[in-house]
């Protein structure tokens, strides 16, 4: 089976959105700090416009806002965007926000000098949608722009697989209720291949803390 054979019973972009709309508040409280790999990528980089695709509560959009003249965070889930808006106000950050789909970004061509696409690619339900989102990232990156793409990987201790696969991972709400989230778990070779199949060029690659990380530029 190939990973783009997501049938009628498979997860849809809508269900991922509905899940994050439901868990936004709790999810945000457990995602207070930026991941060190993102800080590492951003270290020494700056630009005019920063873009965070799949911004969640905005913890990485804040880092972009520090390093760029302006920053924009987009997320599929309206509740997550609302959480980011509230958090940015509480913490005194000034960046733009919009509800958007990673596969059809409402962002102008070549405008982003610095971008992060972190832990979002695996939520897209088909290989076509995932490569489409990578193509969109390539489109919006400035000629000298760089982005960091991350995806949960088969290298993580909790998975026992050598090849990429589709799964659902539960999020447990404070009351004990579990909500499923769709993931495509990438094997490292597949990650490199999918990035290579898009309009992006992989400049650097590593597996860290069970995640694939790729530093990319537009081809």
């Amino acid at each position: 089976m190939t990973d783009d054979e997501s049938g009628g019973d498979g997860p849809s972009t809508g269900s991922v959105r509905a899940t994050y709309d439901r868990i936004a508040d709790h999810f945000s409280k457990t995602r207070e700090y930026a991941w060190p790999e993102i800080e590492e990528f951003l270290d020494g980089r700056s630009g005019s416009v920063g873009l965070d695709v799949g911004c969640g509560n905005g913890r990485h959009t804040e880092l972009l806002a520090d390093r760029c003249d302006r920053a924009l965070g987009v997320d599929l889930s309206r509740e997550m965007v609302a959480t980011a808006r509230e958090r940015s106000r509480e913490r005194g950050f000034d960046y733009g926000l919009a509800q958007a789909d990673a596969s059809s970004l409402p962002v102008r061509d070549g405008v982003a000098d610095l971008a992060v696409f972190v832990a979002t690619l695996p939520h897209l339900p088909t290989r076509e949608a995932r490569i489409g989102s990578l193509d969109e990232l390539a489109r919006v990156l400035a000629p000298d722009g760089r982005a960091l793409v991350s995806a949960w990987s088969t290298e993580h201790d909790r998975f026992d697989a050598d090849e990429g696969f589709d799964t659902t991972v539960e999020w447990t709400l404070p009351g004990g209720e579990a909500v499923d989230r769709f993931y495509h778990i990438y094997d490292p070779e597949e990650f490199r291949r999918d990035v290579g199949s898009s309009g992006l060029e992989l400049e650097a690659f590593e597996v860290s803390s069970g995640n694939c990380y790729g530093v990319v530029r537009s081809e």
């Binding site: 439901r22 789909d101 059809s104």
Partner: peptide, 18 residues
């Protein structure tokens, strides 16, 4: 709405949240 532009493609806009 509420300061947040909804720039989803229109066919995704109407999917009701759970």
């Amino acid at each position: 709405e509420d300061g947040i532009p909804n720039l989803l493609p229109p066919d995704m806009r109407d999917e009701a949240p759970a």
